[in-house]
Structures are given as structure tokens and as C-alpha cells.
Amino acid sequence: MKVPQAGAVAAVIAIALTASGCVFGDGDQGDGTLAIGIKFDQPGIGMRETDGTFSGFDVDVATYVAKELGYKANKIEFKQVFSNDRELLIQYNEVKFVVASYSINEKRKEKVDFAGPYFVAHQDLLTRAEDRSINKAEDLNSKSLCSVSGSTSAENLRNNLAPKAGLLEMGGYSDCVVALQESRVDAMTTDNSILAGYAARKGNEGKFKLLGQNLSNENYGIGVKKGNKELQRKINDALKKMVADGSWEAAVKKNFGANYKYDPAPAITPVS
């Protein structure tokens, strides 16, 4: 899937905001609510359920941070973000911050600042349960693979791990799961935390398998507007408190299951 040009996306967002009269101040809404960007289609991470409620580790982290910033849960407005528009929604004040399996890297740090990291995931592969032909990343060079446009996982596979793999880039991970189930691709790749959530999702039990390949280290951060050091520090303080009082570990176990092998909470990078 071709990623829209940044200028075109920015123009669309700007026009939409102007037309609706909703140009927000750093994600603070006029009615005292707080806009936070999350994923809507990642079980265990950020999921909009059929009844309109939200679940997942990132949702729990975002809710905890918002509470520390003075916002009760009923004052949070969760907004859907995709991997290729997170920076734009921060830059155009559509959200105050983004908590969306947002891996920290140097390219992204040119456009936004990050609080955290608050979690370490590892890129892995998900295949159909009956497939025995894929056991490691190199096996994908003769296979077809699905990932999401704008994700670090797609870049890593294309550039380093399996450059000859046929790569299908979709708009969301749920699309990749459907493509994998329908045998339109042989595997999908992203962070193990996300893949584990899909594999354990009700209705998917026994259909897929996680290969357990630690193909990269993904440090999840909370994206804030470039230069907003005060907010960055406040979020860091909230994350430290979440770890210290046990809420972080409780959220990990609740959302990923007792058998998920997770790294300890990472050291938070001081704001410079």
C-alpha cells in the first residue's frame, strides 16, 4: 500500500480541521477533555471493542498518564491513529500525545519528542498454525509477507532480514491477519506483543503460531509535540510512578497473559 505524501496528508488534515472549526490547542478540547491517539485494531495493545469501549496495554498506560495529568477516565477522548500518520496528528494538535505501539527511532525523533520508553517489544513472525515451511526470517525470501505501511517492521524485513520476500503493505494489522488467514500471504510481521494479542484473540485460537524470533528491539515511547519538554517530563514522571506502584506489571499481565515473556520495564530516558 502506497503511503500518502506527507504534504497531501497534512493538507487534508488542515482542511478538515478548518472546515469543522476544531483547531485544538495541543490536544486539549474546549470541554475539558483530553485527546489521546491510540491504535483501534491491536488486541492486547489498543483495541476498540464492539461495544465502543477500549482495551489493551497502551490504553491502560494512556489512562494512567492522563490521571496523573489531572484527567479522569471519562475526560479522555481516544482517537484512532495509524502507523503512517502519528507524527502528523501530533504536529497538527489533533491529539495531546500518542500511545500506540510507537517505536522510538531517530527518524521519528526529528518530528516529535518521546517520553519513555515504557515497554520493550521484539519484532516477530506470525504464520498459519499448520505451516512448517517458515522457521526463521530468511525463509521468507521465497514467500509473501504482510506488514503495515509506515511500520519499522516492514523496513527491517525489506532492508535487512529478507530483502527478496514479497512484501504486501496494508493499512492496518487486522487487514494482515485476514490476508494471512485467507492464504493471500504466508506470514505477517510486527512486534511480538501485537502478534500475541491477535493469536490469543477469541476466534483465533489455534489458527496461528508465533515463531518466537527476536528480530529487533522495539522501545515503545509516548509521542508528544516537538519541543514540549514540560509535557515530556510530566509523562516520564507518570510512567515512573506506574512502574513503582505495580500498575505497569499488572497491566502487562492483564493484557498479554500469564505466559507472555516480557522484558522488565525499561529505564526512562531523561529529558534533555
Rank of each mutant, 00 (worst) to 15 (best):
E106G: 02
A73R: 09
R184G: 09
I104Y: 01
S20L: 08
G30A: 11
M170Y: 07
E169T: 06
I45T: 09
A10P: 01
G150T: 00
N228W: 07
T189I: 06
G246I: 10
A66L: 08
V98P: 02
G150H: 00
G221N: 05
A238L: 12
V99Q: 02
G203I: 13
I268H: 05
G37C: 07
L69T: 04
E106H: 07
N141R: 03
K261H: 13
S147E: 09
D175P: 03
S55W: 01
E49N: 13
N219H: 12
I222R: 01
R132Y: 08
M242R: 06
K261M: 13
G37S: 07
L239C: 13
V148R: 01
E182K: 13
H122M: 04
T269A: 04
Q232A: 15
K111W: 10
G206D: 10
R132C: 04
D186T: 06
V98T: 08
N219Q: 11
G150Q: 00
N255T: 05
D58R: 03
A199I: 01
I222G: 02
L17W: 00
A100V: 07
L167R: 03
S55V: 06
V120P: 05
A35C: 14
A73N: 07
I76E: 02
R132K: 14
L161W: 06
D113W: 11
S149P: 03
M1C: 00
I38T: 12
A251D: 03
F40V: 01
Y262W: 04
